[in-house]
Amino acid sequence: MIAPKKCNYLKMVSRYMDNDLNEGEKKALQTHLIHCYTCQKHFKAFLHLKQASRFNYPVSPYFAPRVFSALKQTTPPFWKQMAILPEFLVKSGLVIATLILIFIATADIFNNSPSEMTEPSENLILIDELDRQTTLVSNDQALRFALNSNDIIKDNPNEF
C-alpha cells in the first residue's frame, strides 16, 4: 500500500510523467528521488498506471455499417438539402431575396407618406362623389319621411 505521506515533490512526479518539467526541475527531482521513499513509490505507481492505461477497445465489425444506416435515416435540415445547389447560387439567391424584401418594404413606406396622401387618386374622387350622392339621396329620403311623419302627426295628434 502506498504510504499516504505528503511530499512537496509529488506534483512534480506527476508532471514528470507528462514530460512537463524543465531540465532544472528534472535534475532536482532525480536527486530527490534517491532518498525519498514516498516519491519513489508514487513514481513507480504512476508509471505502471500509465503503462496499464493504454488499451484497445474491441469495436464490433458492424459498427461502421450501423452508423451508416443511421446517417441515411437522419433527414438533413432544408438548408442542408439546398447544398446540392452550388454554394454561390444559394448565397446570391439569398442576397437577391433580401434586396427585394428591402425594396418592397421601403416602397410601402413611401406610398404611405403624407405628401402623396394630399393628392387623392381618381378612384378616390369617384368614391367621394358616390358617397356625396348617396348622402344627398339619403337626406332627400329623410326629408320626405319627416314631411310624411308631420302629415301623420297632423292627422292623428292624440297618438303622439
Partner: peptide
Amino acid sequence: VKSRLFRARKELAGMLSHQLEDL
C-alpha cells in the same frame, strides 16, 4: 488540468497499489 491530473493519479495509485506492484 495539472493539479486534477495529479489528484486522479494519486487516488488511483492508492486504490490500485496491490495490482500496480505486481506489474
